[in-house]
Amino acid sequence: MQAEKIKKVGVVLRPSSPELKQNYFELEKIFNKYGIETTIESISGAMIGIMGMEFDNLCQSCDVLVTLGGDGTLISAVRRSFKHDVPVFGIYAGNLGFLADINMGELEAFVKSLVKGEYRVDERAILEATFQENENEVTIYAFNDIVLTRPSVSNMIHIETLVDSKAFNTYYGDGVIVSTPTGSTAYNLSAGGPVLFPLTNVFALTPICPHSLTQRPVVLPGKFSIEMKTPQDRALVIIDGQDKHELEAGESIHIQLARKTVKLIHREEFNYFDVLKEKLNWGD
């Protein structure tokens, strides 16, 4: 993507945050100063009292999608915009995130670099999952993780897992996290899973509170596909902690890395290891 083609950005604000109104106008002023048109997404616009554009139309008409909020806002925007193949970058309104790494005080310097072509585009893996729901095949995307867990806290769950159609493991416990490299520092990390470098083409399976201590996290190459099913139990499928679906006993979910990647825009000097050290207090 050539920098001179960035003529229009679409903006998505963190939901239920009308206090971001002034930030949006400041953002708009900065982009306009450098000849870039700014349009807000319709739900975000309604939240702060201005007219916006419906999300899919916004993605089709803008060159870059900008989120203002935190990592959750960016993850939601990535999932919703994935089919449009539009690059995304995040501005954080609060604490530094793993994904949203620019604050409002740094925005003008970044936009100045952006129009000069001085930025990076990181291509990151995203999970694609298919399953049956109400006799229809549903396809969903997850930027961080897909979690299969028990619908009731009173019972453990059996999850049979196949890798490329071959029996792999049966997990027995509270569930399993299927994580992208980007999501490896989220729920996966809390459950004892590995930290994966975000630009690698792999994914991780991490059991949640397994009944057997021999059940350990596994990292699989991105070319593999997995099938997970619960012969005896209903299962709750949670996508990026934002959406939920239910699987009935005996139903399956098929998960793999999508063929396309997510394009995240960062500053040239962005260093993932610096973010890890700051967020996880490594080296203190």
Rank of each mutant, 00 (worst) to 15 (best):
M1W: 03
Q2I: 06
A3H: 12
E4S: 08
K8N: 10
G10R: 05
S17G: 10
Q22P: 04
F25A: 12
E26T: 14
S42V: 06
S44K: 11
S44M: 10
I48Q: 07
G49M: 12
I50Y: 12
D56C: 14
L58A: 09
Q60I: 00
V64M: 12
T67M: 08
T67V: 07
G69R: 00
G70R: 07
I75W: 04
I75A: 11
I75T: 07
V78P: 07
F82R: 02
F89I: 12
G90V: 05
I91S: 13
I91D: 05
N95Y: 00
G97Q: 08
D101T: 08
M104N: 07
M104A: 05
L107A: 03
E108S: 09
A109K: 09
A109C: 09
V111S: 01
L114S: 11
E118W: 04
R120F: 14
Q132Y: 04
E133G: 03
E133H: 12
N134Y: 01
E135A: 14
Y141C: 15
F143G: 07
I146H: 01
L148C: 13
P151N: 06
P151K: 07
S152T: 15
V163D: 01
S165Y: 06
N169W: 11
D174S: 11
V176I: 13
I177R: 11
V178W: 06
T185V: 14
A186H: 10
A186F: 12
A186Y: 09
N188M: 08
L189Y: 07
G193F: 03
F197W: 11
F197N: 12
A204L: 04
H211L: 11
T214Y: 12
Q215T: 02
P217C: 02
F224R: 12
S225I: 01
A235R: 10
V237L: 15
I238W: 07
G241L: 06
G241R: 11
D243H: 15
E251N: 12
L257G: 12
V262E: 05
F273W: 00
D274W: 00
D274E: 10
E278Y: 06
L280T: 05
L280M: 14
N281F: 10
W282F: 04
D284P: 13
